[in-house]
Design a protein around this nucleic acid. Structure first.
Lengths: 243, 243
DNA sequence: TTGACTACTGACAGCTAATGTCAGTAGTGT
DNA sequence: ACACTACTGACATTAGCTGTCAGTAGTCAA
């Protein structure tokens, strides 16, 4: 069953990438050897999937390729419902509402057989008492990220030092009881994380910033991944705090 | 390669036929045993293809069940993605996989305009260092809930007392760093919560239980809600532990 | 032109997962 | 009651999937 699944996934993967994808990338994503990817691609082409391979470039799929009808299974529904619930418990009202409306849209398309499954869902998320409250508006921060708008705030670091920061907001990261705002700090000229619950006097600045590769989210995530790989586990949350 | 191809062909075959097709027919057409057909159909259903099987009749595919002809907006997509991420970080591998595959199915139906939004998602969930590990298999517990199968285990309560419990498992509840198994305790003749990380020697019993209203999840949830309303906030997790 | 990067092929050993057989349970329609 | 069907479990066999290694050839940029 592994192969059949993978073939499907490869098609989906290629469809949602807009650029060429190399066999090496696919091999990493699907955790198989490149040789296997080459065989898979060949099999897909043999069965009529319009994949184009070019040496030195990678693979491209013709978007027009038509996919078979698909539905969620019971487990997938349960996973989605749980995810929606967690979002509701860990973000703000606005975001929770969006999660709910997405969920309703999904429900609306379900056939009767699956609606019954919904009533049997037995995995929930409860609002946690461990939740650490924050002052800044979650949705406001998200808006600044979207609009590439510089933000300014005072930050109380774990050494209880107060500093004023101006940063390019890049992402909000849920780190269990706390939320982190990841950004490029204009003061330190480097990436930094800030705990939402330690941010005060949050304000949007008029100034927007433009995409710069070495100050982008992609670069940041890449760096974090590299760090993860080269250190042992068992650290606590403190290390993620900024200074 | 035979199987992957056959799975595709079966879908197309069922779509062409407008009446029910028996497993025997499929077995003849594809020159495999009926047993293999049954397995294939199961695999297809597992991946979300809406095939309906009826004893005495045969198989039908429902063409209506194309996935959400639904338009999500950018926020909804972000909320779903975040939820899926949280599920991945807080449950087990099996469940996380299901969440992922659901997400991919949603992605597969998105029009190009929305696919661009996916690349701009900036709200994530990081695997938490606060996560408290548990011994029992998350998926195994879920299976017992589904199958209404009694379970037995030893439980270490917060007073460090060890007891052996036999319960009707009703639901898994995420309570931030810990997961709780909610159930009807056959020993105490009442509803109880058990922290997954304090459960040991988990075993499924042969005996199944039948639905009894006053021992059901619905009743339990109703009771919890009533309790919530009549007490103040600020309690910590201890109260949810059982004894 | 060179060098880096890529697609692609063949061979082979090891092993995973697909398959058929058999035997049984349970639902459907006549 | 009966024929017909979907569906499940166990088990031995083997087909085919996989990784590794080694090599050819196309693409692109400097």
């Amino acid at each position: 069953m592994r192969k059949a699944e993978r073939l499907n996934e490869i098609v989906h993967y290629l469809r949602r990438m807009h650029q060429a994808v190399t066999a090496q990338t696919l091999a990493l994503v699907f955790e198989v050897s490149q040789r296997t990817i080459y065989r898979d691609i060949q099999d897909l082409i043999d069965t009529g999937v319009p994949i184009l391979g070019e040496a030195g470039v990678g693979y491209l799929i013709d978007k027009k390729y038509h996919l078979p009808p698909v539905m969620f299974d019971a487990d997938e529904l349960e996973a989605i419902a749980l995810g929606i619930g967690m979002v509701g418990n860990w973000t703000d009202k606005h975001f929770a509402k969006k999660a709910q409306s997405a969920y309703r849209k999904i429900q609306a398309t379900l056939p009767d057989t699956l609606i019954n499954e919904l009533h049997q869902i037995s995995t929930f998320s409860a609002p946690s008492h461990y939740k650490i409250p924050w002052e800044v508006s979650f949705s406001e921060v998200r808006e600044c990220i979207r609009r590439k708008q510089l933000v300014k705030f005072t930050y109380l670091d774990l050494n209880e030092q107060l500093t004023v920061r101006i940063i390019r907001p890049l992402a909000l990261i849920s780190f269990s009881p706390v939320w982190l705002l990841a950004g490029w700090c204009e003061l330190r000229k480097d990436f930094r994380n800030f705990r939402l619950d330690r941010i005060a006097k949050f304000e949007k600045l008029e100034r927007r910033f433009t995409h710069e590769k070495d100050k982008s989210l992609t670069t940041y995530l890449k760096r974090v991944n590299e760090q993860e790989e080269t250190r042992f586990k068992g650290n606590d949350c403190k290390e993620l705090d900024s200074n």
